Amino acid sequence: MLQTAYSPLGPLLAAARLEGRPAILDGGFGQLIADEYPELDQSGGMWVSGVAVRAPNAIRDAHRRYLEAGADIITTATYQVSAGGYVTAGLAATEAEADALLAATIGLAVDARAQFIKAQAEAGPHQRKPLIAVSLGSVGATLGDCSEYTGKFGQGLTTQDVYEFHLSRFSMLARCLDTAELRGHIDLLAMETIPSAEEATAIVRALDQLTRDNIVLPAAWIAFTTPVTNQTGLGEPIEDAVRAATSSPCVCAVGINCVPTHVVPELLANIARVSPVPVVCYPNGQTWQGSANAWGDASTQVSPTDYAKSAMEWVQNGALIVGGCCKTTPEHIRTLAEAATIGNSWCAPTQLT
């Protein structure tokens, strides 16, 4: 029987249960950097992962802001990372150089957490140690063609190709996490913006293979993206995708990210009904107009206050971990965290098990 790494989600959720609240995830990252630092180049196919190489302080500061806002979990700026991506972007020439860049980017989150914990200790006795999840996107996220939203991967990729891509990238991550600088510092793996049950199957196959090879990564969550309430981006029943994602003991949570807020309540209910593991939810904070390949105008942006109000319904529909994706900010997370700690009775304690 396959064994997997210990998941820290149980203790985190247990602590949240005692406070009658969900666990709080951080918010948008790549879009936050693009909006706040327009002078930073995000071209080259690596998006914010490239910025992490060229302007690490901006990334470290963003992590700190989310921690100070109240996030229980922060995610690394590694969503579009791949060894080939670093090479194509001209940031690395060899596998070893690519490994070093990935490790350094993950290290920015580790540094930010260490700084935050130190500041807490200096401020008083009440302390918390937030978790760090390494963010990795769909294979489509590395292709630069938005296929992470549809699951229709171009360039002739087969199911076996997708599996081998994830296996290779997981192996790259395992090498990084086994270094002296990172060993023992990373808590979770966030597989984000997954558009299909097919890719989820490839991901769990790769995780299980590493486990059989005695290479154990942190426990993973798989978050699907979709524009509708009952199907994946590729069009499969969302329940089938959840079953595929949770078929491995390596997966400790399942849910959604980078989705429009209006589909969230029903979509979460469909997921929670069949999921044997905790549900994570982090939708977008603004409407994406696909036909125009642009964000909607300001009227389509959800305010931090309205976002926090909506999150109460998400919890009632099954989410145990809530945060934000594109166009959410540290202020959205601060408002969410504050709302979750002022006795609003977000959910009954029995729901947070």
Score class of each variant (00 low, 15 high):
Ala197Arg: 05
Gly107Phe: 05
Thr300Val: 04
Ala119Cys: 02
Ala58Val: 12
Ala52Asp: 08
Thr341Val: 04
Glu36Ala: 12
Lys327Glu: 08
Ala96Ile: 11
Glu313Tyr: 04
Glu313Val: 13
Asp240Gly: 04
Val315Gln: 06
Pro56Tyr: 07
Pro283Lys: 02
Ser196Asn: 08
Arg273Lys: 13
Ala245Phe: 07
Leu189Gly: 05
Trp314Val: 07
Leu352Trp: 00
Ala311Val: 12
Ala308Cys: 06
Asn57Trp: 09
Val280Cys: 04
Pro11Gly: 02
Gln301His: 11
Gly27Met: 00
Ala245Gln: 05
Leu320Ala: 06
Val254Gln: 03
Thr300Phe: 07
Lys129Trp: 01
Arg17His: 02
Ala298Cys: 06
Ala55Gly: 03
Gln155Ser: 12
Asp111Lys: 00
Glu164Tyr: 12
Ala5Ile: 13
Thr300Tyr: 02
Pro22Trp: 01
Leu2Gly: 06
Ala200Gly: 12
Asp178Tyr: 04
Thr246Gly: 07
Ile203Phe: 03
Asp35Phe: 03
Leu136Lys: 11
Val263Cys: 05
Ala34Pro: 00
Pro130Val: 09
Leu157Arg: 14
Ala103Thr: 14
Lys327Leu: 09
Leu25Asp: 01
Ser168Glu: 14
Thr246Ser: 13
Glu122Thr: 05
Val81Met: 06
Arg205Val: 08
Val139Glu: 04
Thr105Trp: 09
Gln155Ile: 08
Pro249Glu: 04
Pro330Trp: 05
